[in-house]
Amino acid sequence: PDDEWKERLREAEEKNNWKLFEELARKAGVSEEKIEEWKRRWS
């Protein structure tokens, strides 16, 4: 299951679909801290 969400995150990233990325990350149990960090790195 871990690989599956990583794959989906990669797809979201490729499409630059931040909303989807964020949603998937939350569902995968990624901390808000980590998500914010990704946001900063991404923008």
Rank of each mutant, 00 (worst) to 15 (best):
P1I: 15
P1F: 14
P1V: 13
P1H: 12
D2M: 10
D2Y: 13
D2E: 11
D3I: 07
D3P: 07
D3S: 10
D3W: 10
D3E: 12
D3R: 06
D3F: 09
E4K: 06
E4P: 07
E4I: 10
E4D: 13
E4Y: 15
E4V: 11
E4W: 14
W5V: 04
W5D: 04
W5G: 01
K6D: 13
K6R: 13
K6M: 15
K6S: 13
K6N: 12
K6Y: 15
K6H: 13
E7N: 06
E7P: 01
L9R: 01
L9Q: 02
L9T: 02
R10F: 08
R10K: 13
R10I: 08
R10H: 08
R10C: 13
E11R: 03
E11L: 05
E11Q: 06
E11W: 05
A12Y: 08
A12H: 05
A12R: 01
A12E: 05
A12N: 03
E13P: 01
E13Q: 15
E13H: 15
E13I: 15
E13W: 15
E13M: 15
E13V: 15
E14L: 14
E14A: 13
E14T: 07
E14W: 10
E14D: 09
E14H: 09
E14M: 13
K15F: 07
K15H: 12
K15I: 07
K15E: 12
K15W: 08
K15Y: 08
K15R: 11
N16A: 07
N16K: 14
N16W: 08
N17V: 04
N17C: 06
N17H: 03
N17M: 10
W18H: 01
K19P: 15
K19Q: 12
K19N: 14
K19L: 12
L20T: 06
F21A: 04
F21L: 06
F21E: 00
F21R: 01
E22A: 08
E22Y: 13
E22L: 09
E22G: 01
E22I: 09
E22V: 09
E22M: 07
E22Q: 04
E23L: 06
E23S: 07
E23F: 10
E23I: 07
E23N: 05
L24Q: 05
L24A: 10
L24Y: 12
L24S: 05
L24W: 15
L24I: 14
L24M: 09
A25M: 10
A25S: 03
R26N: 02
R26Q: 05
R26Y: 03
R26K: 09
K27A: 15
K27Q: 14
K27G: 08
K27L: 13
K27W: 13
K27D: 12
A28G: 07
A28Y: 12
A28D: 02
A28L: 11
A28I: 06
A28S: 06
A28P: 00
A28R: 04
G29M: 01
G29V: 00
G29N: 04
G29A: 01
V30W: 15
V30Y: 14
V30Q: 02
V30D: 00
V30N: 01
S31F: 01
S31M: 04
S31A: 10
E32A: 09
E32W: 06
E32I: 05
E32P: 09
E32T: 08
E32N: 08
E33H: 06
E33M: 06
E33P: 03
E33G: 05
E33I: 05
E33N: 08
E33Q: 09
K34A: 11
K34H: 08
K34V: 14
K34M: 14
K34Y: 08
K34N: 06
I35K: 00
I35V: 02
I35L: 11
I35H: 00
E36W: 07
E36Q: 12
E36R: 10
E36H: 06
E36M: 12
E37P: 00
E37Y: 06
E37I: 04
W38I: 11
W38R: 02
K39S: 04
K39A: 05
K39V: 05
K39C: 02
K39N: 03
R40C: 10
R40I: 11
R40Q: 13
R40A: 14
R40K: 11
R41H: 13
R41Q: 15
R41P: 02
R41K: 14
R41T: 12
R41I: 14
W42H: 06
W42N: 04
W42G: 02
W42R: 02
W42Y: 10
S43V: 10
S43D: 13
S43C: 04
S43A: 14
S43H: 14
S43E: 14
S43R: 11
